[in-house]
């Protein structure tokens, strides 16, 4: 996947699962303060990202550090760029 494809798929998750309008999906948008997500939503965000990107997300520390949409992009880009195990 290209970086742009990853960003578009993440934006689609925010549109479909959290019903946030595309116009509000700015990279610097704070996912709690600007996009209105809360702690329950973060669990569902992780589930949705796992399903959409066919990955397992286990790094809880890094997930807790996510604040902006750009952080989500970076987090997934980093996960997708990890060398495959084995």
């Amino acid at each position: 996947m290209t970086e742009q494809e990853i960003i578009e798929l993440i934006n689609k998750v925010f549109e479909d699962d959290f019903e946030i309008e595309k116009v509000n999906l700015r990279p610097q948008a704070h996912i709690f303060n600007d996009l209105g997500l809360d702690s329950l939503d973060i669990i569902d965000l992780v589930v949705a990202l796992q399903q959409n990107f066919k990955i397992k997300l286990k790094d809880e520390e890094k997930i807790r550090e996510i604040r902006t949409l750009q952080d989500v992009y970076n987090f997934i880009l980093n996960e997708k760029n990890k060398p495959a195990k084995g």
Binding site: L40, D41, I43, V47, Q51
Partner: peptide, 11 residues
């Protein structure tokens, strides 16, 4: 199916 609870959403 998978003995996997990581796909279960918070709600």
């Amino acid at each position: 199916q998978n003995k996997d609870i990581t796909q279960i959403s918070a709600t």
